[in-house]
Design a protein around this nucleic acid. Structure first.
Length: 863
RNA sequence: GCGAAAGUGGCGGAAUUGGCAGACGCACCAGACUUAGGAUCUGGCGGGUAAAACCGUGGGGGUUCGAGUCCCCCCUUUCGCACCA
C-alpha cells in the first residue's frame, strides 16, 4: 500500500483507524472521569443503561461486543439527549471455570480471574465503550461478596433460608459433586467417560423463592417493557396452577400402612369420574403399600429407571406409560367408592403431591393408561350443544373429553352444574368436611444455593455440636475465602480441607465448631450487582437507599435471551426481598429489557470446536474498533441473530473512509464562509442533500426511541453520505467524471456543508466514537461531543417532493396516481397513472375534491 | 403435542400504518483514474426481453382499486415449554 498523502492542511487523505484510535485512546486514558455519571443529587433526568456483566473467561467474544455496542450506542445517545446517564460495568467473577483453570494450570483461581479481568477491561477500553469505571463491581472480592453473606443472614433471619436434603450429581471416581454441565449426555462424568454419575443426597441451603412465586407471576403483567417472549417463559417456569388437594383414605389392609393419600388436581369437578389413584414411583407411601408384596419392589425400581431415563433424554413427554396395581385401595371421599391404587411412571414426585386421581374419561394421559390396563372409564362431563336446554339431553362425548365449562353428569348433587361452579362448590365441601381444600401449586421450586466448590462466596454459617446451626454474627463479616487452597478433584468441598477455615469458635457458646464449607451459587452474585453499581465504595452497607431510589429501576437492561429465566427470576425475587426488608422502594429491578440475538457464523454458533470463532482483537487490529462494533449493529436487527461476515466489516470500514474523506476535504473552519449564515437559493442537489439530512436525523432519532433497528439507522447514515458525495459531484465542471479523490467544494454556500457535516458527525458519535471525535476536532469544534445536543430535524424538510395520490371515481377509490407537488402547493399535476382504464375515466374531467389520506395519499374526486 | 417468532435477489437484510418490493451493505459486471490495483470515483445488478410486455416476497385459496403486509388452509425453519395432574 502506498503511504497516505496529506492534503493542503496537512491532514492524511486516507482513513487510518489505527492512528486515529490510538490518538484518542491515549487522550481518553488521561481522563478517568470521562464517562462518570453525576451524583444522585443531580437535577437532571436520570437514565440507567445496563448490559449484563460478563464472566471473565479471559477474552471478549463477538457476542460481548455486540451486547456492549448496543448499550454503548444507547448510553451515548442518552448523554447527547441531556440525561444523567449511569453506564457501569463489572465482573461476574466467581464460578467453576476458575477452578478448572486452577487445576489445569496450577494457578490460583484468584490470580487467574483477576488477570482475565485486566485483559478484558483493556479490550473494552480499546473498543471505546463509555463506562463509568468508578462504579466497577467485581463479585469475587470481599468488598462485594460480604454483602452476599449479609443478605444470606437476612434471608435466614426471616426464615427464608433453610436446609434440606437434596440430590446432587456425584462421580464415584472423582469422589466429588459435579455441576450439571459436567455430566455428559450419556450420564457419565466429564473426566471419567466410563463412569456413571450417581445421585446422592446432601444437606443443602435453599432460599424460599416459592414464597414470592405468586407475586413473581402477577407482577409479570407490570413488565410492559419486557419482550412478551421472556414474560411467557417466566410464566411457564413459575407454572402457577390453581386446583385442589383431596385426601383419599386408605382402605382395608392398606389402612395400616398410613392413613391417606393426598392428590392434587386442577379438575376436582371430575372427581366422580375418578376410577383409580396413580402414584409416582418415588412416592414415599409406595414402599409401605407393597410391604407385604416384596415382588413388586423390582417393578417400582423399573418405573423409576424408565422415568429417569426419559427425563435425562429430555423426552419425558414421549415416555411409554407403564404401571402396576399395588393391590391396595383407597376411598373416594365424594363417592365412597373403592379405588385401586396404582404406581405409574408418568407421575412426577416433584410436581403437586406426587399422586393423582385418574379420570380416564376426561384426561388424555389417564385415558391412555386406562385403555392399556383395562381400567374403568366413567363419563361425568358431557358437551352441551348450542341451543340445548340446561337440563336437556347432552351429547355423548368422544373420549377423552377434556374441555370444561360443560354439563356435569353422574356427579351426585353436583350433576347439572357447569365445571367452574362445581369446582368451587366441591372444594368448599371438601374443606368443610376436612378432607381437602382449594390450593395453588407452582412448578417453581426453592432455589438451592449450596455449591460444593471453592471459588464462590462462603456461606456464613457455623455448625456447633452444642448449639446446632449458628449464623455468623454480622460484625464478623466477611467470612473470607482462604487463599492458597489446593484445588483437587478428590474429596468433597475444597474448603473442607482447610482446617484454619473450618475450625472455628461457636459464636454462641464459644465451644469448638465447624464452618459451613459450601459456597454460594454464582447466581446470587448476579441477582443484585446492579444495585451495588450505584455506589460500590460503601463499606458499611450494601447500598444506599436514596441513591438507589434515584437510579432505579434500571431504564434499560440488555443481554442474551439465555438469561431470560434463571438470572432474571432470581433478580426479581431478590429485589422483592430487598423491598420487604426496607432496603429499596421499587418492586421490580428492570423497567425495560432487551434481549439481543446471538452472533453466529455460517449458520452456526461460534465455537472453538467448529473453528468458526471470530476474535474481536483480530477485527480491531484489521479494521479498528469503530468498524468492528459498528458492524455488529449494521449486520442485522439487534434482536435477531447476526450471521458474521468479514466482508461486511470491510463494507463498514469503507463507509467510514468515505465519511473521513468527505469531512477532511471539506472542513474549512478557518474560512469566514464556514459559519456565516447564507440565504443563497439552494440548487436542486443542495435541496436534496438538505432533505436527506433531515430525513436521516428523523429516522435515527426514531430508531433510538425504541425500535432499535440500528441497521437501518446506519443505512440511513450511508444514504446521507452518498447524497453528500452526489452533491459534491454536482458541483464539478464535469459531474460523474471525477478525478482521483473528488474536488473540494468551491461554489456553494460553505455553511450548508458545514451544518450537514456537523450533524453527520453528531449522529455518528453513538456508533463510531473514535472517528467522530477525530472529525469533531477537524470541524474546529472544541466541545465534548457527548455533551453536545442531539441534532434536531425540521419536519417540513423531511417531506418528499413527490407525493402519492389515489383517485376516487363515483365515490370509490379506483387507482393510484403519482403527482408532483411541492409541499403545501395547491395545484397538482399528474405525472404518472398506473391504470389506463382509470386514466381514461378521469381524463378531461373536472377535479372536484382533493383529499389527503394518512398524510400521504390523496383521493381525487372528479365530476 | 402446545405456544411464540420467522420464511423476501447469489448473500446479510429494507419496506414503522394495506400504497413504487428489494433501501443500505456484501459479492459480481462495466467504465474512469492509474506503472499497478486487493485503493478511489461513476454506473449497472430479482427473473425475463433486442427493448417492452410479462412473472416475481415458502405453497394454495380469499378480501381489496391495490396485499410481503389483512383473513383461511398447508409446508418448512428457529426458539421456548412439555405426561405439570
Amino acid at each position: 500500500q502506498a503511504e497516505p498523502q496529506t492534503d493542503a492542511a496537512g491532514r492524511p487523505d486516507r482513513y487510518d483507524p489505527q492512528a486515529i484510535e490510538q490518538k484518542w485512546f491515549d487522550r481518553w486514558a488521561q481522563n478517568p472521569d470521562l464517562y462518570k455519571s453525576d451524583p444522585s443529587s443531580s437535577t437532571r433526568k436520570k437514565y440507567y443503561v445496563l448490559e449484563m456483566l460478563p464472566y471473565p473467561s479471559g477474552a471478549l467474544h463477538m457476542g460481548h461486543v455486540r451486547n456492549y455496542a448496543i448499550g454503548d450506542a444507547l448510553a451515548r445517545y442518552m448523554w447527547m439527549q441531556g440525561y444523567n446517564v449511569l453506564h457501569p460495568m463489572g465482573w461476574d467473577s466467581f464460578g467453576l471455570p476458575a477452578e478448572n483453570a486452577a487445576i489445569a494450570n496450577q494457578t490460583p483461581p484468584r490470580d487467574w480471574t483477576l488477570g482475565n479481568i485486566a485483559k478484558m477491561k483493556r479490550q473494552m477500553n480499546r473498543l471505546g465503550f463509555a463506562y463509568d469505571w468508578s462504579k466497577e463491581v467485581t463479585t469475587c472480592l470481599p468488598e462485594y461478596y460480604r454483602w452476599n453473606q449479609w443478605f444470606f443472614l437476612k434471608f435466614y433471619e426471616r426464615g427464608l433460608a433453610y436446609r434440606k436434603k437434596s440430590k446432587v450429581n456425584w462421580c464415584p471416581k472423582c469422589a466429588t459433586v459435579l455441576a450439571n454441565e459436567q455430566v455428559l449426555s450419556s450420564g457419565c462424568c466429564w473426566r471419567h467417560e466410563d463412569t456413571l454419575v450417581e445421585q446422592r443426597e446432601l444437606e443443602q441451603w435453599f432460599l424460599r423463592i416459592t414464597d414470592y412465586a405468586d407475586e413473581l407471576v402477577t407482577d409479570l403483567d407490570k413488565l410492559q417493557g419486557w419482550p412478551e417472549k421472556v414474560r411467557t417463559m417466566q410464566r411457564n417456569w413459575i407454572g402457577r396452577s390453581e386446583g385442589a388437594l383431596v385426601d383419599f383414605k386408605l382402605d382395608g389392609a392398606a389402612g395400616a400402612a398410613g392413613d391417606k393419600i393426598t392428590v392434587f388436581t386442577t379438575r376436582i369437578d371430575t372427581i366422580y369420574g375418578a376410577t383409580s389413584l396413580q402414584l409416582a414411583p418415588e412416592h414415599p407411601i409406595v414402599t409401605d403399600l407393597i410391604a407385604n408384596n416384596p415382588g413388586l419392589l423390582a417393578k417400582v425400581e423399573d418405573l423409576m429407571t424408565q422415568q429417569r431415563a426419559a427425563k435425562e433424554s429430555g423426552d419425558i413427554g414421549a415416555i411409554e406409560k407403564n404401571g402396576f396395581f399395588t393391590e391396595c385401595y383407597a376411598v373416594n371421599p365424594f363417592t365412597n367408592e373403592q379405588m385401586p391404587i396404582w404406581v405409574a411412571n408418568y407421575i412426577l414426585m416433584d410436581y403437586g403431591t406426587g399422586a393423582i386421581m385418574s379420570v380416564p374419561a376426561h384426561d388424555e394421559r389417564d385415558y391412555e393408561f386406562a385403555k392399556k390396563y383395562g381400567l374403568d372409564i366413567k363419563v361425568v362431563i358431557y358437551p352441551r350443544r348450542e341451543g340445548d336446554a340446561a337440563d336437556g339431553d347432552p351429547n355423548e362425548p368422544i373420549l377423552p373429553f377434556v374441555e370444561d365449562n360443560s354439563l356435569l353428569m353422574n356427579s351426585g348433587d353436583y350433576s347439572g352444574l357447569p365445571s367452574g361452579e362445581a369446582m368451587t362448590k366441591m372444594a368448599k365441601f371438601a374443606e368443610e368436611q376436612g378432607f381437602g381444600k382449594a390450593t395453588v401449586t407452582f412448578r417453581l421450586k426453592d432455589w438451592g444455593i449450596s455449591r460444593q466448590r471453592y471459588w464462590g462466596t462462603p456461606i456464613p454459617m457455623i455448625y456447633c455440636p452444642e448449639c446446632g446451626i449458628v449464623p455468623v454474627p454480622e460484625k464478623d463479616l466477611p467470612v473470607l475465602l482462604p487463599e492458597n487452597v489446593q484445588i483437587t478433584l478428590a474429596g468433597g468441598s475444597p474448603l473442607g480441607n482447610v482446617p484454619e477455615f473450618v475450625n472455628v469458635e461457636c459464636p454462641k457458646c464459644g465451644g469448638e465448631a465447624r464452618r459451613e464449607t459450601d459456597t454460594m451459587d454464582t447466581f446470587v452474585d448476579s441477582s443484585w450487582y446492579f444495585y451495588r453499581y450505584t455506589d460500590p465504595t460503601l463499606s458499611d452497607k450494601a447500598l444506599d437507599s436514596d441513591t438507589v431510589g434515584y437510579w432505579f429501576p434500571i431504564d434499560q437492561y440488555i443481554g442474551g435471551v439465555e438469561h431470560a429465566i434463571l438470572h432474571l427470576i432470581y433478580s426479581r425475587f431478590w429485589t422483592k426481598f430487598m423491598r420487604d426488608i426496607g432496603l429499596v422502594r421499587n418492586d421490580e429491578p428492570v423497567e425495560r429489557l432487551f434481549t439481543q440475538g446471538m452472533v453466529i457464523k455460517n449458520g452456526a454458533k461460534m465455537s472453538k470446536s467448529l473453528g468458526n470463532v471470530v476474535s474481536p482483537d483480530d477485527m480491531v487490529a484489521r479494521y479498528g474498533a469503530d468498524s468492528t462494533r459498528m458492524y455488529t449493529l449494521f449486520g442485522g436487527p439487534p434482536d435477531q441473530d447476526l450471521d458474521w461476515q468479514d466482508a461486511g466489516v470491510e463494507g463498514i470500514s469503507r463507509f467510514l473512509s468515505r465519511v473521513y474523506r468527505f469531512v477532511t476535504r471539506n472542513a474549512k473552519p478557518d474560512d469566514p464562509a464556514w459559519k456565516a449564515a447564507s440565504n443563497a437559493p439552494l440548487s436542486p442537489a443542495a435541496r436534496k442533500m438538505q432533505r436527506k439530512l433531515h430525513q436521516t436525523i428523523k429516522r435515527i432519532t426514531e430508531d433510538f426511541s425504541g425500535r432499535w433497528h440500528f441497521n437501518t439507522s446506519i443505512a440511513a447514515l450511508m444514504e446521507l453520505v452518498n447524497e453528500m458525495y452526489a452533491y459534491e459531484d454536482s458541483q464539478k465542471a464535469h459531474p460523474g467524471k471525477p478525478g482521483l479523490a473528488g474536488a473540494p467544494l468551491e461554489s456553494v454556500p460553505l455553511s450548508l456543508v458545514a451544518g450537514a457535516q456537523r450533524r453527520l458527525v453528531l449522529m455518528l458519535a453513538p456508533f463510531a466514537p473514535y472517528l467522530s471525535a477525530e472529525l469533531w476536532e477537524m470541524l474546529g469544534e472544541t466541545s465534548d461531543l457527548l455533551r453536545e445536543g442531539w441534532p434536531q430535524y425540521d419536519p417540513a424538510l423531511t417531506k418528499e417532493d413527490e407525493i402519492e395520490y389515489a383517485i376516487q371515481v363515483n365515490g370509490k377509490v379506483r387507482s393510484r396516481i403519482v403527482v408532483a407537488a411541492e409541499a403545501g402547493e395547491e395545484q397538482v399535476r399528474i405525472v404518472a397513472l398506473a391504470d389506463e382504464k382509470v386514466k381514461a375515466a378521469i381524463e378531461g374531467k373536472e377535479i372536484v375534491k382533493v383529499m389527503v389520506v394518512k398524510g400521504r395519499l390523496v383521493n381525487i374526486v372528479v365530476k
